[in-house]
């Protein structure tokens, strides 16, 4: 089997502009992803960071086969995801920023459904679900309707749902948004363990710069749908250091300087309206 878990080549996507089905034209197209290329190595955790609206979720959706690219290719372990859609999907799973469950069904019923449609059998699902939820401190809530769980608890079930199908390529779109610091650490620890024990490759988007630095082997920075920088956290920090000692250059500094928004600018905007 081809060894590159994810290869994205000249990917572009814009919204609007196309003719609506039997309807008027929409206004100007919005480019969400512009000519993006990158590769993720096996076992790597690859971070994608960028401001709100920079195109992170759009990128994740295209890899998940939920959006069709305007241009470019995506291949997962050598499978072109458009030509081998079902095979590629079997290798992928995803955590979305909103937990998205059948609210009145229990966590277990949800997990049973979402894993059965990946071809798993009920006994195997129950065994693995108990194990994963146990590690995330949720084992005793498994039979309650999702409605009764807090948002953070639901997000943990979403993490469980994604890892349940043993994806070799995991797409984590803001997996820790809404979690308290302890739960955040728990999920981060879990992600690291899964990567080590199960040979999974992970693409992670986050707004938490500490998380990006701690978890990611390499990070790409998206601005307006373009990858404007890519490298290990250390490389990125070195790049913006400009003579400053590295300790003074956090990932936050990297983000603010490379995405073109410094804190001072923001403060000025605040001051002058």
């Amino acid at each position: 089997m081809h060894s590159i878990p994810l290869e994205v080549t000249n990917l572009s996507k814009s919204f609007g502009g196309a003719r609506q089905f039997l309807w008027r034209r929409e206004k100007e197209p919005v480019a969400a992803i512009r000519n993006v290329s990158f590769q993720i190595e096996r076992g790597e955790i690859y971070g994608v960071i960028g401001a709100n609206g920079s195109g992170k979720s759009t990128l994740v959706r295209m890899i998940s086969t939920l959006l069709t690219p305007d241009e470019g290719q995506i291949s997962v372990f050598g499978l072109d995801i458009r030509r081998h859609e079902l095979e590629a999907r079997r290798l992928i799973n995803r955590v979305s920023p909103d937990p998205s469950f059948f609210k009145n069904m229990s966590a277990l019923e949800n997990l049973l459904f979402f894993a059965r449609i990946y071809g798993m059998g009920p006994a195997e699902i129950k065994r693995k679900a108990a194990e994963i939820l146990g590690r995330l401190d949720l084992a005793d809530r498994i039979r309650e309707p999702m409605l009764n769980l807090s948002r953070g608890q639901q997000q943990k079930v979403a993490v469980a749902r994604a890892f349940l199908t043993s994806p070799v390529l995991m797409l984590l779109d803001e997996p820790t948004t809404g979690l308290d610091p302890a739960s955040k650490l728990q999920v981060q620890q879990f992600v690291r363990e899964v990567r080590e024990q199960h040979d999974a490759t992970i693409l992670l988007t986050t707004h938490d710069m500490d998380e990006a630095e701690r978890l990611c082997d390499r990070i790409a920075i998206l601005v307006g749908g373009n990858v404007i920088a890519e490298g290990t956290p250390l490389e990125l920090r070195t790049r913006v250091a400009n003579g400053r000692p590295l300790e003074q250059v956090s990932m936050e500094t990297v983000f603010l300087e490379l995405t073109g928004k410094s804190i001072e600018e923001d403060e000025e905007v605040m001051a002058h309206g």
Binding site: S64, T65, R94, S96
Partner: peptide
């Protein structure tokens, strides 16, 4: 309405079986 649509449609199920 439930918000599950993307998770169901990205599963490796041929649409006709769904």
């Amino acid at each position: 309405w439930e918000g599950t649509i993307e998770h169901t449609l990205m599963a490796p199920v041929p649409r006709w079986l769904h």
